[in-house]
Amino acid sequence: MSTPAEHPEVLPEEHPVAPYIRTDRMPHIWCPTCGIGTVVKCFATALAESGLDLNKVSVVSGIGCTGRVAGYMKLDGFHTTHGRAIPFATGLKLGRPELLVTVFSGDGDLVGIGGNHFIHAARRNMDLLVILVNNFIYGMTGGQNAATTPLTAKTSTMPYGNFERAFNLPQLAASCGATYVARWTCLHIRRLTKAFGEALKRRGFRFIEVITPCATLYARLNKLGSGLDLMRFYHDNAEIRHGADTREVGIAFQDRIVCGKFVDEEQPSFLEMMHEHYRKTLGSKYVPTPPEGGWLHE
């Protein structure tokens, strides 16, 4: 833990999150009315409030619109290959256990292409904070059908409507063993910030799904109006049910969105279980990674 002094001072004329984002890359590439910037803002605010040492926080992203977050945040970051954000983050966490590793990526990247890595990281209870920005579509590549596209929604590869069943992500994460599962939309800015702050303090596999509008593809192909119309839709149809049964929180096309914190429990994480097991079996021969860092630290 660091002292708040390590958080840079914000000048009164400067945007409050300027120390956390790379202002030289602004304006960013995200479309007007895309919600990813709001999620980044909420995460930066939660980081500022947590008082964590920013040298010990890293962001790992995959490919896609949300994959840009690792480049836009002024933290150590990885921009990894498509779908492989969680494997890279796992390696980072095992090599440098003192780091707080955050995976910030999209639905297509984390549960479409990298779905297998997602379920296994959740099964192992790997010490990762996974922020999944869900816009129901593959945005950057041109609006193809994603694993989260709700039934009957139109995408560029399903012009007559989607007939594939969609993932219910909180259920997927909870059933694979995630210890913190929450879902918010990017309209719930205060609650989302609170959830990020809460998840930063926990250990184990923490999963936060954030629903964001995609005006350029999802809304345009489905004739839902602008991103602002989608925000109004979230306002009218989001339903907060903390502790709801994750089997009942699936999202249908233009239907209610159940938000809230669904799972919050303490379970031994992968590293804790590994240390405990080796200590038991190898005894004094086992030399665990020191808490201040692994051999890469030298």
């Binding site: 409050p16 999150v17 300027a18 202002t23 009315t33 919600g35």
Partner: peptide
């Protein structure tokens, strides 16, 4: 406005 702005603007 600051929290909801996606462009840090």
């Amino acid at each position: 406005c600051e929290m909801i702005c996606p462009d840090f603007a």
